[in-house]
Amino acid sequence: MQYITKLEELQNYWAQSKKAQLRSFARNVALDIISLKERNVDFEEVFKTPRVHFLYIHHIFEDEETNFDQLLNLLSKQHTFLSHTDAINKVLSGNIDKPYISFSSDDGLKSNLKAAEILNNYGAKACFFVNPNSIGIDSVSKAAEFCKTRLDMPPVEFLSWKDLDTLLKQGHEIGAHTMNHEDVAKLTLNEFEDNLNQCKSILTASCGDIPHFAYTYGGFSNFTKDAYDMVFKTGYYSCSSGVRGAHISDGSIIKENEFIPRRDHIIGGWKLNHIKHFMKKSIDGANVQNNFLPAIWK
């Protein structure tokens, strides 16, 4: 048993399930067809839309590095890159005067060091949302157990506490992502409160202030209004989802405990046309209501 280092290895792992294999094949075919239909779209004009667009990854494996660099190069032409904190403040202030992008990453995989290196080359700073219990895992067998039970993937290397310090010194941010990649929907509110406080205490001791939280699995059905309120009650400044979307403004000021960032998930190895499609879809669907809590929580 050894750590995987390539996206191809992860895709092969997922392909062991015929259902997953068919789903992946169908997805790629559908997106290729959509890309053909969008071949005459002026994406330079689309990307000029004033907005705050949160993009997030989980990994940048060896075979994703070149493509991720090309993506950053593409996006840098029309966008200003913001830190997670600055991007949230931009939405809260209502002053969205041009196109902004903010990057983040979930789960604390070691390959995020390479992601940070590429981001640094473009002056972009990300927020790395981590699970304290996976930081510093020091053996393949322990990583395999965590990955199998929590992430549905083969063993990968995780960031160490020293790595987090390196990211902070480079100007990146560290955020909380539950202690052990728990599904918050399966926790009681008291259990979740303890989890939030443990995350904040442990991460603060090593990394300084931890203002940001992103919940696992990301869908609005994976979280609740009570859980959202608890995030702010325990001292966090923001609570991010993994629901696709982009943020525009009518100039109104928003309170931090009224706003939930939507984040577009991307995989560094995806075709650039596929990523551009997802971004365009979020831009086309952007509205002021996206800044606020979903109807499903009311």
Rank of each mutant, 00 (worst) to 15 (best):
V52S: 01
V52E: 01
V52Q: 04
V52G: 04
V52W: 04
V52Y: 08
V52C: 12
V52H: 07
V52T: 08
H53E: 14
H53I: 03
H53N: 15
H53M: 15
H53G: 14
H53P: 09
H53W: 11
F54L: 08
F54Y: 09
F54K: 04
L55P: 05
L55E: 03
L55G: 05
Y56W: 13
Y56F: 14
Y56E: 01
Y56G: 02
Y56D: 01
Y56R: 04
Y56Q: 04
Y56H: 13
Y56T: 03
Y56P: 00
Y56I: 02
I57T: 12
I57C: 10
I57W: 10
I57D: 11
I57K: 06
I57L: 12
I57N: 14
H58G: 03
H58Y: 06
H58M: 02
H59Y: 05
H59P: 03
H59C: 11
H59G: 03
H59S: 13
H59I: 00
I60M: 08
F61R: 10
F61Y: 12
F61K: 08
F61S: 09
F61M: 08
F61G: 10
E62K: 14
E62L: 08
E62T: 09
E62I: 05
D63R: 12
E64C: 14
E64T: 04
E64G: 11
E65F: 04
E65I: 04
E65K: 14
E65N: 05
T66S: 10
T66K: 15
T66W: 06
N67S: 13
N67Q: 12
N67C: 05
N67H: 11
N67I: 01
N67R: 12
F68S: 06
F68H: 08
F68L: 06
F68D: 01
D69Y: 15
D69C: 08
D69V: 00
D69I: 00
Q70C: 05
Q70W: 08
Q70V: 00
Q70M: 07
Q70R: 13
Q70K: 13
Q70H: 09
L71C: 03
L71N: 03
L71Y: 05
L71F: 10
L71P: 01
L72W: 02
L72M: 14
L72H: 09
N73K: 15
N73I: 01
N73P: 02
N73H: 10
N73Y: 06
L74I: 01
L74V: 02
L74F: 07
L74M: 07
L74D: 05
L74H: 09
L75W: 02
L75Q: 07
L75P: 11
L75M: 14
L75S: 08
L75A: 10
S76I: 02
S76Y: 06
S76T: 03
S76K: 13
K77S: 11
K77A: 10
K77W: 06
K77D: 07
K77I: 02
Q78G: 09
Q78Y: 12
Q78R: 15
Q78V: 05
Q78C: 13
Q78F: 06
Q78L: 07
Q78W: 09
Q78I: 04
Q78D: 13
H79A: 15
H79Q: 07
H79F: 15
H79Y: 13
T80L: 11
T80E: 15
T80Q: 15
F81E: 06
F81P: 07
F81D: 07
F81I: 03
F81C: 11
F81G: 12
F81Q: 10
